[in-house]
């Protein structure tokens, strides 16, 4: 079943937290929500988990607007929140049993699945230990295990791997991938570009409550250019230095100034040139303008570039 989000809106008093959010998500796909703090990600997640009612819009599942049936949404969704909101007094097994209870699952029928999930997430040895004695990483893994207990159709993950070491992150990523292989859909809010790169089939960048960019990671990177160049004409560039350097490339065919208000000047390079060719062109332009080169970095665009330049509205 495809999940369709149509024109969700939410304001808090006079502040528009979410102006308009629409997307659709097919089974087995992972959609990453990116955006700076205050972009509307948390509001969107709160609406999709029924914690906050929207001012307008629809959430369609099997053609029905399930915003009118919030319990249906809660049945469909497994939610891992950004906060590690666990009960420290309970053990992991007790916490799974508690979760089963509030999900109306008979523990005797779901105990094996709960224990399998704990085992899969590397918590078997600690399953009878109180959660208060768990590390942050263990709590995150347990959080995911509880979210998966009732076999949800949609997983909503709000920064699920924050603070985890690489092994724990990869463990969680593999579980998320397995979930999608079984037909589940995932909405992933993250600030981790590597995570987005690794997992996302589609990316949606939110800025000030609206979608500023969306598409597959590959399409978004290609849209930015073949290469992204970062250059400095001196170690600490002043605004004047940046403007001077940017002016050199303004209007040049196949080159686009992405920004010149940081510690460096960024350019997007279009076309099919080789990296060495691009380097040569940039250097010759700077030489022609009699500007020195302190550093020059040419690379294929990554998700961070897409995100950074999308928010600036320059790409």
């Amino acid at each position: 079943m495809t999940l369709e989000i149509k024109d969700l809106k939410k304001s808090y008093k006079d502040v528009a937290a979410l102006r308009s959010l629409s997307f659709s998500l097919s089974p087995g796909r992972i959609l990453a929500l990116l955006g700076p703090n205050g972009a509307g990600k948390s509001t969107a997640i709160k609406i999709m988990t029924t914690l906050v009612p929207p001012d307008g819009g629809q959430i369609l599942w099997e053609g029905r607007d399930i915003l009118r049936e919030p319990r249906k949404i809660r049945d469909l969704v497994g939610y891992v929140s950004q906060e590690l909101a666990m009960d420290k007094v309970l053990t992991a097994v007790e916490f799974m049993q508690f979760t089963a209870g509030i999900l109306h699952l008979k523990w005797r029928d779901h105990r094996d699945r709960a224990l399998q999930l704990l085992d899969r997430l590397g918590l078997k040895e600690a399953q009878d230990r109180q959660i208060g004695k768990y590390s942050g990483g263990m709590k995150r893994r347990l959080d995911l295990a509880t979210a998966l207990l009732h076999n949800p159709r949609i997983l909503i993950l709000d920064e699920p791997t924050t603070g985890l070491d690489i092994e724990a992150r990869e463990l969680i990523w593999s579980l998320i991938r397995d979930f999608t292989k079984e037909g589940g859909s995932v909405i992933l809010a993250s600030h981790d570009f590597q995570e987005v790169q690794q997992l996302a089939d589609e990316v949606l960048i939110l800025d000030r409550g609206v979608v500023s960019q969306s598409g597959t990671p590959q399409a978004l990177k290609e849209q930015l250019g073949q290469f992204v160049v970062r250059l400095q004409t001196r170690e600490y560039m002043t605004a004047r230095d940046q403007e001077q350097a940017a002016a050199v490339f303004a209007g040049q065919t196949g080159l686009r100034v992405l920004n010149h208000d940081d510690t460096w000047v960024a350019l997007a390079v279009q076309g099919e040139s080789a990296m060495s060719e691009v380097q040569g062109t940039i250097l010759s332009h700077l030489e022609g303008a009699d500007l020195p080169v302190f550093s020059l970095n040419v690379q294929h665009p990554n998700m961070e570039d897409v995100y950074r330049f999308s928010l600036r509205g320059d790409s």
Binding site: T49, R74, S81, E83, A85, D87, T99, I102
Partner: peptide, 14 residues
């Protein structure tokens, strides 16, 4: 305060 209530509210309680 700790966000645990949100966990309960996001569950399909009757």
């Amino acid at each position: 305060e700790l966000g645990f209530l949100d966990r309960l509210l996001a569950a399909p309680l009757k």
